[in-house]
Simulated assay, not measured.
Amino acid sequence: MRVAAAPISWGVCEVPGWGHQMEPGRVLAEMRDLGLAATELGPEGFLPGDTGARDAVLASHGLGLVGAFVPTVLHDPAYDPMPDIDRAFDRVDGVLILAAATGLDGYDGRPDLDTRAWATLLANLDAITLRAAARGRLVTLHPHVGTVVERRADVERVLGGSSVPWCLDTGHLLVGGTDPVWLARFAAPRIAHVHLKDVDAGLADRVLNGEVSYTDAVRDGLYRPLGDGDIDIPGIIRTLEGAGYEGWYVMEQDTVLTGEPAEGGGPFDDVRRSLDFLAGVAR
């Protein structure tokens, strides 16, 4: 399988105050030691901003770069997201994974969009998709808790109103009320990138119902090593592979760290368990 890593599995996140942020040297070394061949970029500042220096750091750990998570405001008629997109294209050769950001810090709340904001969002998604194609690049939309594309109704509205390819994030879909197995089956030709998460469905329901914040739920173990949660990961992989999916499966288990984990523990152990599970699925 084409399996890559993501720094968020080591608690490295763009949200201010998210938790302890591990140094890139240790994170990349642990990715390498787990046998992973590639990673997503991580938040701005995690790796060097100069592309040559960044690629040298990755190469020194035997890692390639598969893409970057790019949160940007897409629904505001007064905001032009294209400069953000062009800067991301200039610095990353892989997949651009868009999140329709609210413009606020964090993922614990979001505005409701009016008709004009929805029209702006959908028009921007199509314009960015065309911009990517003109540059020979791939862009995907990542449904994400705390963004303006979060709930099942949002997912269906974008599916029907835009041609943008999708990043199937199994965890964020479930937390937002969308069955990822359904989306894998219904929209397989649109899926161009995958984030694999497993989820405690009970905690996910509490987030969806507003009983607990998203950040608190992540801190409390919302995301589980693959096979330890309630998502049918093998079924999703079988569906995508059967539909001819040729992209990456990015291992993501968002976590909030309270301090530096012991060697071989914490994120390293969780990702190792997930990779063992995937090896069984592949067999």
Rank of each mutant, 00 (worst) to 15 (best):
V3A: 13
I8G: 00
G17N: 09
E23C: 02
M31W: 09
L34R: 00
L34Q: 03
L36M: 13
E44A: 14
L47T: 07
P48E: 06
G49C: 04
L58I: 03
L58D: 09
L63Q: 02
L65Y: 03
V66T: 12
V66Y: 05
G67L: 01
P71Y: 12
P77A: 09
D80L: 02
V92P: 02
L96Q: 02
L96K: 05
L98C: 08
G109C: 11
G109D: 14
R110P: 03
T115L: 11
A119G: 14
T120E: 12
L121A: 00
L122P: 05
A132M: 08
A134G: 14
T140K: 00
P143Y: 01
V145N: 03
G146V: 03
V158R: 01
V164Y: 07
D169W: 08
V175D: 01
R185C: 04
R185G: 09
V194C: 13
V199D: 01
A201L: 08
D205E: 15
L208S: 12
V212S: 00
D216A: 12
D216P: 00
V218D: 05
G221E: 04
Y223W: 11
D230L: 00
D232N: 15
I233F: 01
P234R: 04
P234T: 04
A243P: 03
A243G: 07
M251N: 14
E252Q: 13
E252H: 15
E260C: 10
E260V: 13
P267S: 11
P267M: 09
F268R: 13
D270A: 15
L278T: 08
G280C: 09
G280I: 10
R283F: 01
